[in-house]
Structures are given as C-alpha cells and as structure tokens.
Amino acid sequence: MQPYFNEQQIVQIYHVSKRFKHNCQALEDITLEVEKGDFIFITGPSGAGKTTLLKLLFVEERPTSGQIIVLGRNLNRVRESNLHRLRRQVGVVFQDFRLLKDRTVFKNIDFVLRLYGHPPKVREKKAWQILSMVGLEKKIDSYPLELSGGEQQRIAIARAIVNDPPLILADEPTGNLDQKREEEIMAIFNQINARGATLIIATHNRSMISRMGKKVVSLDNGRLVSGAVM
C-alpha cells in the first residue's frame, strides 16, 4: 500500500524495518504516526531501537524496508544532495551531543544560525537569548571540553532549538542532568511545544515520563509494544 501524505501528520512511519550488518535486527515492522504539535516520548530498555528510530527520522540511517514521511517528504526519495533542506527543519539533540570541540559555545550555536544566513547582530542576539534560556550565557566563550556533561547537553539542546524548527528530536536529552536541570529543560521543551513545535524524545527515564504526562510509545527488541497510532 502506497502511503499518502496527511498534512496533520508531521511524521508518518509505515512498516519500517532496519537491519544492520551481521544480521542485527534493530527495528521490525514499525508503523507510527505523529501529529503536528505532539509531544511524544519513545521509551524502552537499552537496545530497544529508540536511537535507531530517531536516526531514521533525520536520515542518519536509511531503513532496510518500509516508508517514512517527515514534514511531507518521503525520505526514501530524498536525495543525499537535498538532505540539508530537511535537516534544517529538524532540530536534533544527539545522545553524544556532537559539539564542535575546537569552537566556543557561541560558535557552536552561531554556525547553525549561519546556515540561515542571519546577519551577525541577529545571530549574536539569538545565540545569547538561547544560551540564557538553557542557563549557559556565562559560558559563551568556553570550549565544550571545559564544560561538564550536563552543560554540554544543554548546548546541544540550545543548538537544536535555536532556529525554531517545526520538529525536534532528542535522544536522552536529560541523561546527564540532575532533577532540577531536568525539570528546567523539560519546561523549555514544553514552552517550545506550546509555540507549535512537535517533539519526539527518546528516553528510558520512566519517572520523568510519568511526571510529564505526555504520549508514550514503547519499543522492545526493535518492536513497537505500545502506543502505536494506527
């Protein structure tokens, strides 16, 4: 069956499987739809396929079978040379942060703003605003390796949300934070969500999920065990 694009659904995943080399089955027959403005947690034990599912959504990996539509684009048909257009609309918080280690905190945020061609003054203002939002305005001239894991995580979050993308994917965004910081970050995510952005957050932090009271999709061994929207 050919999937059709539904404007209300920002992410549509149809019968997606992902098999890595050496026959390692990461995901199997996942079907999932996420509506615009949703705030969804993907949960499950380590190795359940949470990270792989997120990677498929911003095309760091391609599915072995099945179809994925993100922001109206069928990812199977998006050519490598056009991927940047999709990625500029998807803010990603990586589990390993993926910061530019030889650039200051400001430069890490600034280079993403540069992709949009903002003039220097606007970039400076936006970078300062977003770093204040995550409580790192005093570390603007520090280098990532001079900061703690939690601080690096907050830069990664700032980088993902600074351009107000309609879709934000976050892989364990509070993994290195204490409960106070965790709540602050979740408040920021709530704020972004209230402005209309869709958030898909992969986490195994059950207590946080229950505190937030949002939609939850559970994965186990690469299969969807609950929360599928059919």
């Binding site: 760091e60 940047h84 990625r87 998807v90 992709l115």
Partner: peptide, 15 residues
C-alpha cells in the same frame, strides 16, 4: 567528525 556534525545539522555541500 566536524564535517559529519555540520551535515547532520543541515549544512549543505557549499557551506
């Protein structure tokens, strides 16, 4: 690694 990060956050070939 740096180039890969740039690509993942939306930098095109030109950038």
């Amino acid at each position: 690694e740096e180039i890969e990060i740039m690509r993942l956050v939306g930098a095109d070939r030109w950038f």
